[in-house]
Design a binder for these strands. Structure first.
Length: 164
DNA sequence: CAATGGGCTGGAGTTACCTCA
DNA sequence: ACTGAGGTAACTCCAGCCCAT
Protein backbone atom coordinates (compact mmCIF):
# COMPACT_ATOMS: atom_id res chain seq x y z
CA UNK A 1 0.00 0.00 0.00
CA UNK A 2 1.24 3.48 -0.67
CA UNK A 3 1.94 5.28 2.56
CA UNK A 4 2.45 8.92 3.31
CA UNK A 5 1.97 9.78 -0.28
CA UNK A 6 0.65 13.26 0.12
CA UNK A 7 3.97 14.96 -0.30
CA UNK A 8 4.44 13.89 -3.84
CA UNK A 9 4.85 16.72 -6.29
CA UNK A 10 6.14 18.95 -3.57
CA UNK A 11 2.87 19.52 -1.74
CA UNK A 12 3.77 19.01 1.89
CA UNK A 13 0.43 19.78 3.52
CA UNK A 14 -2.48 17.54 2.81
CA UNK A 15 -4.69 19.53 0.54
CA UNK A 16 -8.26 18.46 0.45
CA UNK A 17 -9.55 18.09 -2.98
CA UNK A 18 -13.23 18.27 -3.63
CA UNK A 19 -14.17 15.77 -6.29
CA UNK A 20 -16.14 17.21 -9.13
CA UNK A 21 -19.72 16.14 -9.71
CA UNK A 22 -18.72 14.15 -12.77
CA UNK A 23 -15.96 12.39 -10.91
CA UNK A 24 -18.31 11.48 -8.10
CA UNK A 25 -20.90 10.15 -10.52
CA UNK A 26 -18.36 7.96 -12.29
CA UNK A 27 -16.96 6.69 -9.02
CA UNK A 28 -20.45 5.88 -7.78
CA UNK A 29 -21.28 4.02 -10.97
CA UNK A 30 -18.07 2.10 -10.72
CA UNK A 31 -18.74 1.31 -7.08
CA UNK A 32 -22.16 -0.04 -7.98
CA UNK A 33 -20.55 -2.47 -10.40
CA UNK A 34 -17.91 -3.69 -7.96
CA UNK A 35 -17.18 -2.26 -4.56
CA UNK A 36 -13.53 -3.24 -4.73
CA UNK A 37 -11.05 -2.66 -7.50
CA UNK A 38 -8.19 -4.75 -8.72
CA UNK A 39 -5.00 -2.83 -9.56
CA UNK A 40 -5.83 -2.75 -13.25
CA UNK A 41 -9.30 -1.34 -12.70
CA UNK A 42 -7.95 1.17 -10.23
CA UNK A 43 -5.38 2.41 -12.69
CA UNK A 44 -7.87 2.64 -15.53
CA UNK A 45 -10.39 4.48 -13.39
CA UNK A 46 -7.78 6.89 -12.09
CA UNK A 47 -6.72 7.63 -15.64
CA UNK A 48 -10.30 8.16 -16.72
CA UNK A 49 -10.95 10.54 -13.84
CA UNK A 50 -7.64 12.35 -13.98
CA UNK A 51 -6.89 11.34 -10.40
CA UNK A 52 -4.03 9.50 -8.77
CA UNK A 53 -4.65 5.77 -8.21
CA UNK A 54 -4.20 6.39 -4.50
CA UNK A 55 -7.10 8.83 -4.56
CA UNK A 56 -9.32 6.28 -6.22
CA UNK A 57 -8.24 3.71 -3.68
CA UNK A 58 -9.01 6.04 -0.79
CA UNK A 59 -12.36 6.95 -2.26
CA UNK A 60 -13.35 3.29 -2.48
CA UNK A 61 -12.18 2.63 1.05
CA UNK A 62 -14.20 5.52 2.39
CA UNK A 63 -17.18 4.55 0.27
CA UNK A 64 -17.17 1.04 1.68
CA UNK A 65 -16.96 2.48 5.16
CA UNK A 66 -19.94 4.73 4.48
CA UNK A 67 -21.94 1.84 3.07
CA UNK A 68 -21.20 -0.24 6.12
CA UNK A 69 -22.13 2.55 8.46
CA UNK A 70 -25.42 3.05 6.69
CA UNK A 71 -26.15 -0.66 6.81
CA UNK A 72 -25.38 -0.68 10.51
CA UNK A 73 -27.89 2.09 11.03
CA UNK A 74 -30.49 0.14 9.09
CA UNK A 75 -29.77 -2.99 11.12
CA UNK A 76 -30.03 -0.99 14.30
CA UNK A 77 -33.44 0.32 13.31
CA UNK A 78 -34.52 -3.20 12.44
CA UNK A 79 -33.45 -4.56 15.81
CA UNK A 80 -35.16 -1.69 17.56
CA UNK A 81 -38.41 -2.57 15.87
CA UNK A 82 -37.96 -6.23 16.76
CA UNK A 83 -37.43 -5.22 20.34
CA UNK A 84 -40.56 -3.10 20.33
CA UNK A 85 -42.57 -5.96 18.84
CA UNK A 86 -41.27 -8.38 21.42
CA UNK A 87 -41.97 -5.98 24.25
CA UNK A 88 -45.50 -5.56 23.02
CA UNK A 89 -45.96 -9.31 22.66
CA UNK A 90 -44.57 -9.83 26.11
CA UNK A 91 -47.01 -7.32 27.54
CA UNK A 92 -49.86 -9.12 25.87
CA UNK A 93 -48.77 -12.51 27.12
CA UNK A 94 -48.33 -11.26 30.66
CA UNK A 95 -51.83 -9.91 30.57
CA UNK A 96 -53.11 -13.19 29.24
CA UNK A 97 -51.36 -15.12 31.96
CA UNK A 98 -53.07 -12.94 34.51
CA UNK A 99 -56.41 -13.59 32.91
CA UNK A 100 -55.81 -17.32 32.85
CA UNK A 101 -54.79 -17.31 36.47
CA UNK A 102 -57.96 -15.45 37.33
CA UNK A 103 -59.97 -18.04 35.43
CA UNK A 104 -58.32 -20.87 37.27
CA UNK A 105 -59.26 -19.27 40.56
CA UNK A 106 -62.87 -18.77 39.61
CA UNK A 107 -63.99 -21.78 37.57
CA UNK A 108 -67.61 -20.69 37.73
CA UNK A 109 -66.78 -18.12 35.06
CA UNK A 110 -64.87 -20.50 32.92
CA UNK A 111 -67.71 -21.52 30.64
CA UNK A 112 -68.85 -17.97 30.06
CA UNK A 113 -65.51 -16.63 28.97
CA UNK A 114 -64.43 -16.28 25.41
CA UNK A 115 -61.15 -17.99 24.73
CA UNK A 116 -58.05 -15.94 25.43
CA UNK A 117 -56.57 -14.32 22.43
CA UNK A 118 -53.56 -16.54 22.08
CA UNK A 119 -55.65 -19.67 22.14
CA UNK A 120 -56.91 -18.79 18.75
CA UNK A 121 -57.35 -21.14 15.90
CA UNK A 122 -54.22 -22.73 14.54
CA UNK A 123 -53.89 -21.50 10.97
CA UNK A 124 -52.65 -24.86 9.74
CA UNK A 125 -54.85 -27.38 11.52
CA UNK A 126 -57.73 -25.00 12.24
CA UNK A 127 -58.26 -26.31 15.74
CA UNK A 128 -58.42 -24.45 18.95
CA UNK A 129 -56.08 -26.00 21.43
CA UNK A 130 -56.91 -29.53 20.32
CA UNK A 131 -54.20 -32.13 20.77
CA UNK A 132 -52.56 -33.64 17.73
CA UNK A 133 -54.05 -36.96 16.67
CA UNK A 134 -51.06 -38.93 17.90
CA UNK A 135 -50.61 -39.53 21.60
CA UNK A 136 -48.89 -36.87 23.56
CA UNK A 137 -45.21 -37.51 23.98
CA UNK A 138 -42.81 -36.44 26.66
CA UNK A 139 -43.76 -32.85 25.98
CA UNK A 140 -47.23 -33.20 27.43
CA UNK A 141 -47.92 -30.64 30.05
CA UNK A 142 -48.97 -31.09 33.67
CA UNK A 143 -52.44 -29.78 32.95
CA UNK A 144 -52.82 -32.29 30.17
CA UNK A 145 -54.60 -29.78 28.03
CA UNK A 146 -52.08 -27.22 26.96
CA UNK A 147 -51.15 -27.58 23.35
CA UNK A 148 -48.37 -26.27 21.23
CA UNK A 149 -49.72 -22.83 20.73
CA UNK A 150 -49.65 -21.39 17.24
CA UNK A 151 -47.44 -18.35 17.03
CA UNK A 152 -49.65 -15.29 16.79
CA UNK A 153 -47.32 -13.83 14.20
CA UNK A 154 -43.82 -14.07 13.01
CA UNK A 155 -41.91 -11.20 14.53
CA UNK A 156 -38.92 -11.51 12.21
CA UNK A 157 -41.06 -11.79 9.16
CA UNK A 158 -43.07 -8.80 10.29
CA UNK A 159 -39.98 -6.78 10.86
CA UNK A 160 -38.54 -7.80 7.54
CA UNK A 161 -41.66 -7.26 5.51
CA UNK A 162 -43.66 -4.72 7.45
CA UNK A 163 -45.93 -3.82 4.55
CA UNK A 164 -46.88 -7.35 3.48
C1' DC B 1 5.40 -30.12 3.14
C1' DA B 2 5.87 -26.53 6.78
C1' DA B 3 7.88 -22.20 8.19
C1' DT B 4 8.99 -17.54 7.20
C1' DG B 5 9.41 -12.96 5.36
C1' DG B 6 7.80 -9.38 2.24
C1' DG B 7 4.35 -7.10 -0.50
C1' DC B 8 -0.33 -5.88 -1.08
C1' DT B 9 -5.00 -4.95 0.33
C1' DG B 10 -9.00 -3.88 3.19
C1' DG B 11 -11.06 -2.48 7.63
C1' DA B 12 -11.17 0.49 11.55
C1' DG B 13 -10.19 4.55 13.62
C1' DT B 14 -8.50 9.25 13.30
C1' DT B 15 -7.23 13.73 11.47
C1' DA B 16 -7.61 17.73 8.69
C1' DC B 17 -9.99 20.45 5.75
C1' DC B 18 -14.17 22.33 3.59
C1' DT B 19 -18.94 23.84 3.44
C1' DC B 20 -23.00 25.55 5.22
C1' DA B 21 -26.52 26.98 8.39
C1' DA C 1 -17.32 38.00 10.34
C1' DC C 2 -17.43 34.20 13.33
C1' DT C 3 -18.55 29.55 14.77
C1' DG C 4 -19.97 24.81 15.44
C1' DA C 5 -21.59 20.69 13.12
C1' DG C 6 -21.45 17.54 9.50
C1' DG C 7 -19.32 15.53 5.44
C1' DT C 8 -15.44 13.54 3.47
C1' DA C 9 -10.60 13.14 1.54
C1' DA C 10 -6.51 11.46 3.33
C1' DC C 11 -3.91 9.37 6.82
C1' DT C 12 -2.09 5.56 10.27
C1' DC C 13 -2.14 1.13 12.09
C1' DC C 14 -3.04 -3.53 11.96
C1' DA C 15 -4.57 -8.09 10.34
C1' DG C 16 -5.12 -11.32 6.69
C1' DC C 17 -3.90 -13.23 2.33
C1' DC C 18 -0.73 -14.66 -1.28
C1' DC C 19 3.60 -15.92 -3.06
C1' DA C 20 8.48 -16.76 -3.35
C1' DT C 21 12.23 -18.75 -0.81
Amino acid sequence: MERGSDEEDGETSRKKLRLSKDQSVILEESFKEHNTLNPKQKLALAKRLGLRPRQVEVWFQNRRARTKLKQTEVDCEFLKRCCENLTEENRRLQKEVQELRALKLSPQFYMQMTPPTTLTMCPSCERVGAPPSSSSGPTSTPMGQAQPRPMPFNLWANALHPRS
